[in-house]
Write a protein that binds this DNA or RNA. Structure first.
Length: 268
DNA sequence: CAACCTGTTCGCCA
DNA sequence: ATGGCGAACAGGTT
């Protein structure tokens, strides 16, 4: 279920194993999550190394190990990280298990839209090179957002919000939450936003990102009842602001929920 | 049983 | 070359 804040939550699960050695690595090299990855090197180089650092950037995570090993993990649609007691026997969808003296670190992903990458050597792997500014960073400023919207001016704002090259970590529920809060119809072409709407849009993006990280990122708690997320999938779901029945349509290839009253289409 | 799903990537087309 | 869109990927849930 991972978007920005859930990714942060899962990253912290493996921090229980920081500074501890990896005694053994269990995986099935043929699984789709290892596509394009040298699993023999992964097993060889991680065995005997220690977990020294974890970093999340948008929906991407990397776990660094002593000796210059980098384990990249993307959770896809159904991935999750957790720990179990030492000696844990992997279940059906536990595709990668790092056995440590006191616990096992586990990556589970039934649908396997996720991905495991591996790099061993000097410097930073190319798949972990700097990309878009993070939403909470100073570089995520009005100019940056405006230029990105302009570049994708013909696409609906909902679709543009899902582009990881511009809004790292935003997924389907966050995108709907942001547009609902900014009072912008999801089908609005990005280039049609007024200056005031762009300001509201950037503000809502930062707010939802920061609050989700604070609330969900630490212990997977529920956002406040006032958030759209609690109503968007219910049949008969209504806007938590004014009670209008939520509209639903596929926009940007994803099911989108919005309030036609709070988020009127332009000209309506 | 059919439809649906908190994500990315590819090929096609403009 | 770049942007936009629909399909594909797999398995669980409703």
């Amino acid at each position: 279920m991972p978007e920005l804040a859930e990714v942060e939550y899962y990253r912290k699960q493996w921090d229980a194993g920081l500074r501890r050695p990896v005694d053994a690595v269990q995986l099935h090299a043929k699984k789709r999550i290892f596509r394009g990855t040298d699993t023999r090197a992964l097993v060889r180089d991680l065995t005997g190394s220690r977990l020294v650092q974890s970093i999340a950037r948008g929906k991407q995570m990397v776990f660094r190990f002593s000796g210059g090993s980098w384990l990249g993990i993307h959770l896809g649609m159904t991935g999750a990280l957790r720990t179990e007691a030492a000696g844990f026997r992997p279940l059906k969808h536990d595709h990668l298990v790092l056995q440590q003296p006191k616990r096992a670190l586990i990556f589970r992903d039934p649908r396997q839209f996720g991905r495991v990458r591996f790099y061993h050597g000097r410097g930073t792997p190319d798949w972990w090179s700097e990309a878009a500014p993070e939403i909470g960073s100073p570089d995520f400023n009005a100019r940056y957002v405006s230029e990105f919207l302009k570049r994708h001016r013909r696409a609906p704002i909902k679709a543009v919000l899902l582009l990881q090259s511009g809004f790292p970590g935003v997924g389907n529920w966050m995108a709907d939450e942001i547009l609902w809060r900014a009072r912008i119809a999801p089908s609005t072409p990005s280039g049609d936003l007024t200056a005031a709407q762009r300001t509201a849009f950037r503000r809502a993006t930062r707010f939802v990102s920061r609050e989700a990280l604070r609330i969900i990122g630490n212990d997977n708690a529920d956002p406040p009842a006032s958030w759209l997320i609690h109503y968007r999938w219910k049949s008969g779901g209504v806007c938590p602001r004014d009670g209008t029945p939520l509209a639903r349509a596929t926009i940007g290839g994803r099911t989108t929920a919005w309030c036609v009253s709070c988020q009127p289409a332009r000209g309506a």
